[in-house]
Design a protein around this nucleic acid. Structure first.
Lengths: 343, 343
DNA sequence: TTGAAAGCGCTAACAC
DNA sequence: GTGTTAGCGCTTTCAA
């Protein structure tokens, strides 16, 4: 693989031996300097760095990976959607991985893909990643997946066997509970739940948080309304719900469904929040600008990604160290205008 | 780099020599089979494949990259945001790259990052990518960037010097023109434009399309309203606009701004579309579910990504072939309820 | 504190 | 059709 200016950018790509020659040292010394190894005199270090700079030298990562057995790259398995949650998580992961000095490789899974997560992991393993991030896992019913490198599961614990499995939550359950309690605190006798796709652990977490809040106060648990994360499914749920006059409060598993739901409610002549209060989940950028502005909860994606990757890198670089546990990020409930006390 | 089950998944990771031994052939023959090279008898091929399967053999990509000078990976420079446009493009690129048999490496740029796009490209080059995708480039004023591998620019042409530069548009200009013409066709005497950040080529394309439509009909060109892509900036623009009673039609450079704009208009007592018609850009999943449902245009992200990556792979694998040009995807205008004839 | 030699696991070029 | 011989550009011993 050619590098620097690349394929045939005029002169041949310099290698570490060229740098060594120019600096008047051995090739190994160049390697030492480039890897910040000790036992190099400051004077030699300077000389090597200057030579490398002069030549426009860039390290060949493939050679390094082959010789060292480590690729300094991390792979992420992400959902192949442009939805706000997964997309935000990916942005956070990229940032954290780059800051840690690793390269990022991405493989998306698509709904209905037979290979699924384990297929994506296989692809990443072949590419020689040092660690794997599973972003917002879904339950594929495939049982346990065995992996030979440390794994970080972001979003919800899942079934993996690996040298080390780090799991960092995105506070979904606490947030769902907080959202439900907000509605209860407002005086609603109970709260309906418009759920996400239950194969997603994220959907289960939200459902569990809702259920926990209800039970803690001894409230009736209304039948769950099934959604599929899309605004269209929220809209369909809203049409069905509009006829049930006993519904005064709904907690939707994401903002898109909440917005679809509200639209259907409005069309059916039910006012929000006067007749029905609605809480969403995600705090998408638009949440403050829909009508009415949406009360919702915000997931700490950036914190989760940063903390999680930190732990993953630790597991990669110090396999024997005790896995330190991640901090629980603060729960953020954003109260806007889609919730009010019942009439 | 250890592979297969990985780091220390019980037994040592098998190499091609192990497969060769088991199959009773030379190591080179294994290589031939694995690379689908000709001149291998069907019988031997079977035997090798069976042996590889039995051993759970996985090719070591680092070794392959080092020996062949090609990494079979493509790097993408993307914006570090979870916004719908960039996120959709990334999903499309990942899909297309994987389907082409390449691995994907991602480096995001962040607003205000001094290294910017050229820094991201450097990182990718060091990682040994065979080609680079620039997703939705922005003008950093850094002049021309030199790269040694083929480059695909997705969204708008930009300044690159590379062995081959492929540019595939996402039809932004035609779509902006169609959006503006829709408003004109409805009978509006002119159309205001709520623009995106002008450093983004995407924003310039939309502005140009709007301007072209106006000029083609000899209409007055109202002063441009500056936005920053966010709903908040659309909201601010809406408040300012609400007082100008001459405004009857607005084309916003994305849906988020359109939605913020509409909200401000509504709050100020101006009805949409009765008093003011609004067209957005992107067709985000929520566009159909806001109030009123948003008339907008849809960018062919998936087509652009697929076509673009096809051309890029061609440039990588057949550097001397004539660069075939991409097809122009069809323009899609989605008329919903935020536009109507002026009163 | 530095250097020489020996691979890492593949593909490339050439022989047979 | 198949095998042999050399590397790819680094890191890892081990010596000095």
């Amino acid at each position: 693989m050619t590098r620097g200016l690349g394929r045939d950018g005029g002169s041949a790509t310099p290698r570490s031996a060229d740098v060594a020659r120019l600096a008047g040292v051995s090739q190994k010394t160049v390697s030492r300097v480039l890897n910040n190894e000790p036992y190099v005199s400051a004077e030699v270090r300077e000389r090597v760095l200057a030579a490398a700079d002069q030549l426009g030298y860039r390290l060949n990562q493939a050679a390094r990976a082959l010789a060292s057995g480590r690729s300094r790259s991390i792979g992420v398995v992400s959902l192949g959607t442009a939805w706000y949650g997964p997309a935000s998580l990916l942005v956070g992961v990229e940032r954290a991985v780059r800051d840690a000095g690793y390269a990022l490789r991405v493989v998306n899974t698509v709904e209905g893909d037979p290979a699924g997560v384990s297929g994506a992991i296989q692809l990443l393993i072949e590419q020689g990643v040092d660690g794997i991030v599973i972003s917002e896992p879904i339950d594929e019913g495939a049982g346990t997946v065995r992996v030979g490198v440390p794994v970080l599961v972001l979003g919800a614990p899942s079934a993996f066997v690996a040298p080390q499995v780090v799991s960092v939550g995105v506070a979904a359950e606490q947030l769902a509970r907080a959202a439900t309690e907000h509605l209860l605190d407002l005086g609603h006798s109970t709260v309906h739940h418009l759920a996400g796709v239950q194969r997603w652990y994220a959907a289960r977490d939200r459902l569990n948080g809702w259920r926990t809040a209800l039970r803690a106060r001894g409230r009736a648990e209304p039948p769950i309304i099934a959604g599929d994360w899309t605004a269209a499914s929220g809209y369909a749920a809203g049409r069905a719900l509009a006829s049930g006059s006993d519904v005064t409060a709904v907690f939707a598993a994401n903002d898109d469904m909440a917005i679809g739901l509200i639209r259907a409610l409005l069309e059916a002549g039910r006012r929000v929040p006067d007749d029905v209060s609605v809480v969403g989940f995600d705090d998408i950028p638009l949440a403050a600008f829909v009508t009415p502005p949406l009360t919702t909860v915000r997931q700490p994606f950036d914190v989760a990604a940063r903390e999680g990757v930190k732990l993953l890198v630790q597991a990669i670089e110090k396999p024997d160290a005790d896995p330190s546990t991640a901090v629980d990020p603060p729960v953020e409930l954003i109260i806007r205008a889609s919730t009010a006390p019942p009439r």
